[in-house]
Design a protein around this nucleic acid. Sequence first.
RNA 1: GGUCCGUUCGUCUAGGGGUUAGGACACCAGAUUUUCAUUCUGGUAACACGGGUUCGAUUCCCGUACGGACUACCA
Length: 512
Amino acid sequence: MKEVRVRFAPSPTGALHIGGIRTALYNFLLARQNKGTMILRIEETDQTRYVPGAEAYIMESLAWVGITIDEGVGVGGPYAPYRQSERKDIYKQYAQQLIDEGKAYYAFDTEQELDAMRERLKAAGVDNQQYNSITRMQMRNSLTLSEKEVKEVLQSGAPYVIRLKVPKKEEIRLNDLIRGWVLVHAAQIDDKVLMKSDGMPTYHLANVVDDYLMKITHVIRGEEWLPSAPFHVLLYKYFGWENEMPHFAHLPLLLKPDGNGKLSKRDADKMGFPIFPLNWKDPQSGELAIGYREAGYLPEALLNFLAFLGWNPGTTQELFSMDELTQAFSIDRIGKAGAKFDIQKAQWFNQQYLRAKTDEELGKILLDLLASQKIEYPLAQAMKIANVMRDRITFARDLWEQGRFFFHAPTEFDQGVVNKRWNEEAVKVLAAFKDEVLKENDELTADRAKSILEGVTATLGIGTGKILQALRLSLTGAGGGPDLMMIMEIIGKNEVAKRITHAIQTLKMKVA
RNA sequence: GGUCCGUUCGUCUAGGGGUUAGGACACCAGAUUUUCAUUCUGGUAACACGGGUUCGAUUCCCGUACGGACUACCA
């Protein structure tokens, strides 16, 4: 069997969108599964849209989620260069070949002339206002001008483009791996521009030429390319590359969560979730967009989530590592319909992956979080916190945000709990408990804390359950949280005593 | 407008001529947890519509509706 060669070919016009990551992932999985090659090609044939930093961003994003590139920009390879701007001469040569063979032609029409043509057709009630087999004969191009005139215009240095001469009557068919046979009549395809007046190729030419030269076997890309795919097939035909033509697979789109339409940055902002893998600061506006990484998502969780948007293994298993995805992936299990983006499911995946981490892994993550708060803390303690917090968090940062009380005594107390649970009985127990705790010689363990507390309540003849909330309140300021005894073990006896004392003082007035 | 693509619970989806139409997220309820979260158990909830074909259609075919993509010298 032929070696599988796939490519991810983004355009560096800004940050890589989450949908792009999914496209890259599917390509990557197919490559890995078949021991093939994953290629990164940068398609920046439009200089006006080029954004500095976008290319580096793309590469960093792919690296972060664990999609490794075998060949292409950044790593090199036998078909270099992999940046389309550096392959200008190649495209020119192929465009010339089509001209020579009469399959393409020069067109000299100005923008105004093109507009005028569309207006004219529109006014005449023609649905299809295209530059095509009919209209091209009324325009200024090498088909309508004499050979001598064409030569003159070319020599005068006037701007021109090269267009493909699409046949009038022909049925173009393409067998999409996801959608099956797609038929299009050539009459519905326009004479697309192959070479722009600035000497750069359009996507269509560059894409086909590169895929052919780079021996690409599978083109997996977004559905937005489906309408132009027949045109690409035609190009392969014109070049005589039909036998080398890659398989096409047009992926369903990622849709916005509410309403309809393609998922956009605007929707993401509106709904409050990231759309880019990494933070992205727009060099034009200076605006910062938060990325999944910075929002606290684990790369493996994001990947797993994305993999399931449009694909599924056909079993009930949902948690897949990259290796497992590689095993299970198959193009024929990709769905046809667009998938609405549901951030809640992404959060669930993140939760699952967070839980699967060891105390040590999670403890270290907490230490990083603490470092940014300028808090130094022992790993052994951080691991204990990780252990009690694990099942309560969705994001790594919740370790800090929901566990502040481990590091700072509460400054405020939940009023609802105060009203309900803070009373004289509780104060009595707490004061006695504090005294007992301070008498301890050893470090306070959870078990020890519990027996001391039970001793105190037994002596005073008050039910332990009645004052537990008050104790929690005094230690954390809130009415909910992880196991209270463990909290005491982690913060230590002196801190326990200090906080109880402080709470009794602060809340005294409120009882009366 | 035109061309192309699509349509199973709110969402991601499985399934496929005869099923109690399955799972997951979310949601709701109960149990456990003296709290909260977790966990467990249970529950609400879907084949867009109309015609065919067929003994039988959610499944196949055709329409309609709805949605989407494309319709640039952008990718």
